[in-house]
Design a protein around this nucleic acid. Sequence first.
RNA 1: GCAGCCGUAGCUCAGCUGGAUAGAGUAUUUGACUACGAAUCAAAGGGUCGCAGGUUCGAAUCCUGCCGGCUGCGCCA
Length: 592
Amino acid sequence: MMSELYQNNITTKLAQTILTSLVDISPDHGQTTESILKSFAPAPEFKKGHLAYPCFPLAKTCKKSPVQIAQALAEIVEKNSSNFLASLNAEGPYLNFFFKPDFLGEVLNAINKGLYFNQRLISSDEKWMIEYCQPNTHKVLHVGHMRNLCLGNALIRMCRYSGLDILAATYPGDVGTHVAKCLWYLNKHVEKPWPSENKGEWLGELYVKSNTLLEEEKGTEKEEQNRSELTTILQQLHAGEGEFYDIWRETRDWSLEMMNDVYQWADVEFDRWFYESEVDAPSISYINKLFEQGKLVKDDGAIGLNLEDEKLGFCLLVKSDGTGLYATKDVELARLKFEEFGIDHSIYIVDDRQSHHFKQVFKVLEKLGFEQAKKCFHLPYAMVELPGGGMSSRTGNIITLESLISSMEDKIKSDYLNKHLEDKDSGWTQKEVNTNASLIANAAIKYGMVRVDNNRKIMFDMEEALKLDGETGPYLQYVCARCRSLCEKLNFDKTKDVYWDELQMEQELALMVKLTSFNDVVLSSVNKLQTLHLCSYLYELGKLYNSFYAACPIKNDENEKRKHARMALSHAVGSVMEQGLNILGIKVPSKM
RNA sequence: GCAGCCGUAGCUCAGCUGGAUAGAGUAUUUGACUACGAAUCAAAGGGUCGCAGGUUCGAAUCCUGCCGGCUGCGCCA
């Protein structure tokens, strides 16, 4: 079982106080700490309150109007909360609260000591696996693949931060007609010597050329010959021997190398690589065995399972020619996951076109008697599209990852970093410029991929993508770099006590309140398996910090206690931002 | 035909289990570097929340029916 362990000390304390105060209004108020916690909402403006409690739900049980309840409750809560609330007021049906800075500061102390991030948010004794990133070999990796990669990586990091035991798996497609087409072209239309580097990308280009040529020759006298040549290749690959099998083994490695390069760039690691070739043959014999056991049916010469009762149609598992399909392999793959790792929960991050496919597969697993089938979950996401339509590695209508990275790095250097090289006193080296440009481009791409809702397609526009202002990864990195550089230059001493009560400006209080809800945001994001809210949280935190930074001088503050508290606040912002970005798979450059 | 997703400012998107005056970014316009980092900040204009009903104290949010776009739906991967 899974249970939530984390409790927010700030909001819990307030909820408990409201709960005890409610008894004086009506003994049968019907509320619990949890229900009150759920009701809390931000006030429309920070000036109105740090947190609001709408009294509508109390009207029925307390038999008074929400406005009357808010007024009555305000008086009672005020008496019980002098140690942690600075003030509160009833405005219409709402109760608005202002916290004392030193009460909020307790959480900030924990953040600055690192203790805040070491809490386990969730307890679960179950094993989880997330499968993501299923690119094909012999094709190019493009920005469309990045959405899956960045989303999966962020979710895994988020779950691990929360305390879940998660295995990361990838499932590359190293067999199928796309491989045969690529090898056909390579063998028939490409002269040796083959290139010595970037061979994975080169294969992807051959695949596009192969498709174009095969398409051109359709309807000509060559069509029949092409078809039989492709069949020969597929047969050799299936048999595991012959000239094409050897070429396959060599070229497959090129593609896997290319994938590994990208995963290294993305800072992604998988605990298990499941290859399509690994489950291909076993999947067919497994399905045939199930058919012989009478668990599957034959229809029009093909083996499958009728799921009409569930309104899922017929799930075809072995074609009439004896070969398998995606579903065939996915059944075998699921079985392998259950048996090899004993997992309880199996999550598949795959684009939303496969929704029907996974409904069928999970239903088949259930009918075959796999208990874990109920805990298989397809997490769909919408595709990345170009202004001219969807991306297709078959037609070559794509933007390769490599080209996106290099144009972004060039832009970062020319717009921002190269000026440091011209300034001799800045101390920047060319090497630092290169590594920082790489980290910043990395952040821009990752943040761009995880900041929108999973269900919404991403319209990828190169011009827009290259703008690094506003809500972007680099904006957040910049906040971190500012916090770090400030604490370093002013010699912030972490060990000294902080007088949080010195912080009374609206910008300061807003930041403090925001910081205390980081773990709440992460926890709810894990429960929803989405990254969107963490992104907007971090962006709001960044905006608040930049406002504070512009409004509150630190270096020249004559009030030494306040100066130190402001540095402590900056340090806490830097820590939370770094932790949040780390969950999104984004690293922070030491300077930028 | 059936199913899923989407429709909110010129553009790209938030808006949580219904709640205070529907918010950001971008673009446009205007201010702020002898300053702790201007990749920043402060401000202005910009909306029939696709349309029409319904549910109720209250709907961008829930329900129903339409309209528009995308994606699936047995021998592709």
